[in-house]
């Protein structure tokens, strides 16, 4: 009997509680072209080094939380396809709070995105359409003509 009771408790605790994992959705791929029009002052001058997207170019939503006290954190990292890691640097910044009953904080200064997950901003509860701005730095005539491509991976982590 005692064995049966213990086994039942064990199985119940192992079973999924039925709650969905917190979900993150991101939209807003960023594409741009650098050409002679981006020279600082025509022939003899170098390229403008920094390029910034619209303030709300990327929209991030967090959903399927368990409620307004369900804390989460957004991590971000880069996965390069064709990139110049020592030259081109990518930054992200949260430019607004989005919508919803939840809360959001942090991430309101430009944060460099590396190839390792790093905390970007945090919040609690469901939150939609959080605006994010992107910035590319390091452009110059030393960057050879090519199409440079990388992916930004946003991960929502449920925290205590």
């Amino acid at each position: 009997m005692a064995w049966s009771l213990a086994l039942a408790v064990f199985i119940i605790l192992l079973c999924p509680s039925g709650a969905l994992a917190i979900d993150v959705t991101v939209t807003g791929n960023w594409s741009d072209t650098v050409n002679a029009f981006d020279l600082q002052a025509g022939a003899g001058s170098d390229l403008v080094s920094t390029y910034t997207s619209d303030a709300a170019h990327v929209s991030l939503s967090v959903s399927t939380t368990t409620g307004d006290t369900d804390n989460w954190r957004i991590d971000v990292r880069r996965s390069d396809t064709v990139w110049l890691p020592g030259t081109l640097r990518l930054y992200v910044k949260r430019t607004g709070d989005g919508m919803g009953a939840g809360t959001v904080s942090g991430g309101q200064t430009f944060h460099e995105v590396t190839t390792i997950d790093q905390a970007f901003f945090q919040g609690a509860g469901d939150r939609s359409s959080i605006p994010i701005q992107l910035q590319l730095d390091g452009m110059s005539v030393q960057v050879a003509p090519a199409t440079y491509s990388t992916s930004l991976i946003f991960t929502v982590v449920d925290v205590l």
Partner: peptide, 30 residues
């Protein structure tokens, strides 16, 4: 069983989404 419950509540499954950044640098000769 208690240990399993504790571990499962500390770090629930993370979820991710991705956007792409493409920058074309054209030949510049001025």
């Amino acid at each position: 069983a208690g240990l399993m419950a504790a571990l499962s509540s500390m770090a629930l499954a993370a979820n991710s989404d991705t956007i792409t950044v493409n920058y074309e640098v054209q030949a510049i000769n001025e």
